[in-house]
């Protein structure tokens, strides 16, 4: 676990821990809301083919992950290089072999991984009831509605997490996120009429 400590140190010296956390919430929220939208769309169209629903959700999840990985890597690499150049100019030294140089190489990769994996993992959790039923499992409630419920619960949890970061009451921030999700569902249901 020594490498984890080193990554933690690199995040610390570049003061990017907050950025990684923000990316996790923003793209995680993106992933959850996208899944919720797709699932609600399938719900109102009364599609019964689980394989089709899983395929559509998985495709969107992979696209979100790739988008998150590449966009965060490109932007963060540019930011870290800019910061390193500024620091090298101030220090009048080549810092490529120092912790700052390593941070400029590794931090963009770490942030990109967070940004890409957050929507992917959250999407997998959301569609897991669908996969479970499709592979022969039994649920007490219909798989599609269960997945919609999981999506709403995860969005609520992301709101709670944001509340903890912002040191506000967790229930309020969780409910705020949930209201956004329910408005999204309502809008899709309205458009589907």
């Amino acid at each position: 676990m020594r490498w984890l400590g080193r990554l933690e140190f690199l995040l610390h010296i570049t003061r990017t821990r907050g950025i990684a956390r923000r990316y996790f919430v923003v793209n995680g929220f993106d992933g959850a809301l996208t899944m919720l939208g797709i699932l609600t769309g399938f719900y109102i169209s009364e599609a019964a083919d689980l394989r089709l629903i899983i395929g559509a959700c998985a495709g969107a999840a992979v696209a979100l992950a790739m988008s998150g990985l590449t966009s965060a890597y490109i932007s963060e690499r540019a930011e870290r290089r800019r910061e390193l150049t500024k620091l090298e100019e101030a220090m009048v030294a080549d810092l490529s072999e120092s912790a700052h140089g390593r941070a400029a190489r590794w931090v963009p990769l770490l942030i990109a991984a967070v940004n890409g994996l957050a929507p992917l993992l959250i999407s997998i959790v959301i569609i897991s009831p669908l996969i479970f039923v499709w592979t022969g499992g039994n649920l007490a409630t219909p798989a599609l509605q269960t997945s919609i419920g999981v999506a709403l619960f995860i969005i609520f949890l992301l709101g709670v997490f944001l509340g903890q970061i912002g040191r506000t009451f967790w229930l309020i921030s969780g409910l705020q996120a949930l209201v956004i999700a329910l408005c999204t569902v309502a809008l899709i249901l309205f458009l589907g009429l």
Partner: peptide, 17 residues
């Protein structure tokens, strides 16, 4: 017994000179 080379390496590792 201070090892200056090690000290210098530690300083440079943290971006100092």
């Amino acid at each position: 017994d201070i090892d200056l080379q090690r000290v210098r390496a530690a300083i440079e590792e943290l971006g100092g000179s």
